[in-house]
Amino acid sequence: MRDDLQLISDWIPHNATLLDLGCGDGTLLAHLKTHKQTAGYGLEINQDNLAACFEKGVNVLEQDLDGGLGNFQDHRFDYVVMTQALQAVLRPDQILNEMVRVGREAIITFPNFGHWKVRAYLGLKGRMPVSSALPYEWYNTPNIHLCTVQDFETHCRKHGIRILERQVINRNHRTSVLSKWWPNLFGEIAIYRVTV
């Protein structure tokens, strides 16, 4: 399992209920179901991923995140998780609001556009950054709303979203002293636990 998923699963207690937005092939949900007896659903639109979830026995609903989460009641879940999808939705601010409405807490991961390599790529090469965390070209990228650690935290502060926990990791999914002190410069992937 991806290390960021491992980190997230460490945050989730036994018997929690969760909603995984853009759940992919259901790896996280299946892992949590087996090891922490969680219950919940994934939302996904990719057919191959849906089929993989079906095979795994993970609950998955075909639903486009850009349509919102209006079909879920307030605080229906203990956790609403969204890994590496915030930057790909039409309105990250709206989905964030929905996440903290539907879940008691929300867990979000995104690629940090403030990482020094990204800055260097744009600053020195003068071209849109391409890296292992951001493998697309400017014209075909699904990542239409990239942000930095600082952008995200500023947004949360402004909109009354409380940050309960933060982890920033590098491309090898490790935390380092540098990324601990200067997350916006040395973190490649940011992981947050937030609530309202």
């Binding site: 219950a39 659903y41 849906l50 079906f54 993970v58 998955v60 609903l61 075909e62 879920f72 229906r76």
Partner: peptide, 19 residues
């Protein structure tokens, strides 16, 4: 179909849905 799915989700049932 989504009405059925929503009913099941609200009732906390195991459900998967494809369109």
């Amino acid at each position: 179909s989504r009405e059925i799915v929503n009913g099941l989700v609200h009732a906390g049932r195991n459900v998967s849905y494809a369109e």
